[in-house]
Simulated assay, not measured.
Amino acid sequence: MNQFIAGLPKVELHLHIEGTLEPELMFELAARNQIAIPFNSTEEVRAAYQFHNLQSFLDIYYQGANVLIHEQDFYDLTWAYLLRCKADNVVHTEIFFDPQTHTDRGVAFDTVVNGIHRALEQGRETLGISSLLIMCFLRHLDQASAFATLEQAMPHQDKIVGVGLDSSELGNPPEKFKDVFQRALQAGFLTVAHAGEEGPSDNITQTLDLLGATRIDHGVRCSDDPELMKRLILEQVPLTVCPLSNLKLNVFEEMESHNIVELLRNKVCVTINSDDPAYFGGYMTDNFHAVVQAHPMSREEIARFTFNAIQASFLSEVEKQRLTQLTVNYLACFEAS
């Protein structure tokens, strides 16, 4: 099964580019930009990656982002992630970025988006990896800050396809950002949002009804609400689940108790993603392995995560058909061999 997973075409829909900042690159950028960081070695950084909840992770996540200053830094960060994608056979990725994390430090919006976009374009040309970019609002900040960020994004609609909502879910319900999401929809952006990770299942319902989200990031608390489960199945609302992240942040105590496979078997459009892989100990292939080791699955079931992700993506129908056929062919060839 390891060989099958390694070669399986994969589509990632829930990836925070700032969360791919490996300790080695953190030190390299800190030295290049003369930024002081509170660590003496990469081993010390990794030792600090022991989190008891989402906020304990975010504290160190924002601290690490301080080394990102120049357009080249964002390019290098994104390029390093794309090389990981190539190794894991990720054929398409839809990347989140958090502009407020950087603009609040005095880094220009254009610096951030141009660095990321330049790497994504090169990844398309030289690695054959297609990609789309989604801008997230930080939900622990106020809606006025989100509106300001949305305005900064307007000249970059050729680079940014959608907006999302991330950061601390507790105490920051979806309704807090209803107006800015309505404005984003009017401007032509697609919408996604984190919900039902550490927050209640009602956050998922509100995200669908108030924010007009077409995808739910995480969403694992949906199992607490039978009526919501029926809705997700009937409407085929995609959930971009991040198994290793959920384990690292104690959303589930062990992978054996994770509900991702149960959701899949109940016909929820659930997908596998890596979230913040530098911090949570695994990229796409690692997440697939972790799920399958804890929940024995058939090859057809494993491939369904990819089929779901293709359908849940913001790709054109032509591209969806191409990637679906690619996966069908892979599954057939593997079965034949």
Rank of each mutant, 00 (worst) to 15 (best):
G164I: 01
T149R: 08
I134Q: 00
E175W: 08
L326K: 02
V261C: 07
R46C: 12
V237P: 00
R221M: 13
F147Y: 09
L138D: 00
I60S: 09
L21R: 00
M26L: 12
H102N: 04
Y49R: 05
D276H: 06
Q186A: 14
H194I: 05
L234Y: 13
E169P: 03
L58R: 04
K176N: 02
V270S: 13
I17T: 00
V11W: 02
F74D: 07
V251W: 02
K248M: 14
G106V: 07
Y81D: 05
Q206V: 05
M284C: 10
G128L: 01
V113Y: 04
V161R: 11
A148I: 06
H194V: 00
V270M: 13
T78H: 04
Q152K: 12
G199R: 06
V291S: 09
S298T: 15
H218T: 05
S130V: 05
D179P: 02
E300R: 14
A65W: 03
L331S: 03
T271I: 07
P200F: 10
L127Y: 04
F181K: 02
K86N: 15
T78Y: 02
G196K: 07
L190N: 05
S223D: 14
S130I: 01
K176F: 02
I134P: 04
V268D: 03
A187G: 04
E169G: 06
N259M: 11
E254W: 06
D217Q: 01
N172A: 00
E22I: 09
T207N: 06
T111R: 07
S313L: 02
F96K: 02
S298M: 10
L54F: 15
A278K: 07
G128M: 03
E227S: 14
H218C: 08
N114A: 08
Q206C: 12
I5Q: 10
N2G: 13
A312I: 04
E121F: 07
K178C: 12
V180C: 04
A303R: 09
F39K: 14
Q293G: 05
K86A: 15
P173C: 11
L15P: 01
Q72W: 10
A30M: 14
I272E: 13
A290E: 07
R139W: 01
F97Y: 04
L120N: 00
E22W: 08
E18M: 00
F96D: 00
L211G: 01
Q186R: 10
R322T: 11
V91Y: 03
R32M: 10
K320A: 08
L29C: 14
R105A: 15
T324D: 05
R105H: 15
H102M: 06
L127E: 05
Y75P: 01
S41R: 08
H14K: 05
W79L: 05
S168Y: 07
A119R: 06
I204G: 03
Q72F: 12
H16S: 02
I35V: 15
H117N: 14
A312Y: 04
L68I: 12
L247W: 01
S201W: 15
P243R: 04
Y61V: 02
V11C: 05
R183I: 08
I5E: 12
H117V: 09
R322N: 13
D104H: 00
T149K: 03
E71T: 10
D59H: 12
V67Y: 12
G282M: 14
A213I: 03
A213Q: 06
F51V: 11
L326Y: 12
E121A: 11
F147W: 06
K10F: 09
I37V: 15
P238I: 11
L315T: 01
G199C: 11
I17K: 00
Q182C: 08
E227R: 14
E169N: 02
